[in-house]
Design a binder for these strands. Structure first.
Lengths: 201, 201
DNA sequence: GACACAATCTTGACGGTGTCAAGATTTTCG
DNA sequence: CGAAAATCTTGACACCGTCAAGATTGTGTC
């Protein structure tokens, strides 16, 4: 429980302010000075907690991955005995997260953060999330609805597919021919069904 | 053939300068003023040809899509009687383009351009490229190596998959578990093979 | 409890950025 | 040839990330 001591616990307030600005003004509107102002401190107060803007972005992205992890976890955990539902619901949760947090999603995946591997907590949050995907994929392989293959390789394939469709849709790259008839969730559901093996029942 | 009249044909020189800066300094290093300087004109000369920075970015992205289209076309056209090879080689060309033009690729797909639909030539170039994918997918369906489904829907699925894997890899999001053992081309090839139907021979 | 030290925050400055207005120069065209 | 339009320069503005110097507040030690 962080108590206020000087002005409050800035670090987190700055991250929160960043997320809010991101949601309100988009990636282009995110500046250190605006974040500082929204947190009620002067323009270079953030430098007591983040060495530069990239660092703040890394923190916001990390927060995003933590939230994504939590939502995936929540979508998956009720069905530990039903891997197929885990896969379908997990994917739905992923799409929902991207749609509801468009700009956080962008900042997490669109290369705005330039040297990801310099931020260990970011790397950890992101690979923890990936390991969730691997687990579900593995469970699906065990019951024979996904083909036999290295689980991490297959996981990249599946995650990549969902991620790619969502990204293209977010970019408005898909709209004309397809998205007028289907929405993103539908396209993604279709994609996953294509990957599932026919059950030999 | 654009002749020099005042200082040369700026518009194109600016686009070219932009691509070069992009390749040399990355997305973060791209500024209107640097572009102008590299083209040998003063800092606000670009405003005679582009209303704002977004417009220049749109032009660079459009150029990128034209190049991508050309490379896909070149990879595909020799095999008009072999859709499977068209699909595999097209995908390889896509990955190669992303790897060789990392930052142009980013600018094309990473939401840096904020209102794509305001730039008709951009929309046209991008959807022309998409239509190539649809064509190949349709040809593959005709010979029964891809499942029956609306061609554009299936095309989004496949393009999305390739695009997602490439994006995640470019972001360094995949490295730890997978990319140490496989490279991007391998992962993508694996993904495509998963989608192909077993021939009933 | 006092005091030195460290953490936190403010103020002010620097160069770089996108954009606009005013004016200079050049091309185009009637 | 001359007027009008296109092109480019100069200069200014607000905003940005970042740094240095100093003020303020909390922490740990005797």
């Amino acid at each position: 429980m962080p108590k206020k001591y000087h002005h409050g616990d800035l670090k987190n307030a700055l991250i929160k302010a960043g997320v809010e600005i991101l949601a309100k003004e988009g990636v282009g509107g995110l500046s250190l000075r605006k974040v500082a102002q929204r947190a009620g401190v002067s323009h270079s107060a953030p430098y007591a907690h983040f060495p530069d803007k990239q660092s703040l972005i890394a923190a916001i992205s990390t927060e995003g991955f933590n939230q994504l992890y939590a939502e995936l976890e929540a979508a998956i955990s009720p069905y530990s005995k039903n891997p197929k539902k885990q896969l379908l619901d997990g994917v739905k949760a992923y799409v929902r997260f991207a749609e509801e947090n468009t700009d956080t999603f962008k900042i997490m995946f669109s290369g705005i953060l330039e040297k990801e591997k310099d931020y260990p907590t970011f790397v950890e949050s992101s690979s923890k999330t990936f390991s969730l995907v691997v687990m579900v994929v593995q469970a699906c392989q065990d019951i024979g609805i996904l083909p036999a293959a290295p689980a991490d390789l297959l996981a990249v394939t599946i995650w990549g597919q969902i991620h790619g469709i969502v990204s293209l849709a977010l970019e408005g790259q898909v709209s004309h021919t397809v998205l007028e008839q289907y929405n993103v969730q539908d396209v993604v559901s279709f994609a996953i069904e294509q990957m599932l093996l026919r059950q030999p029942n």
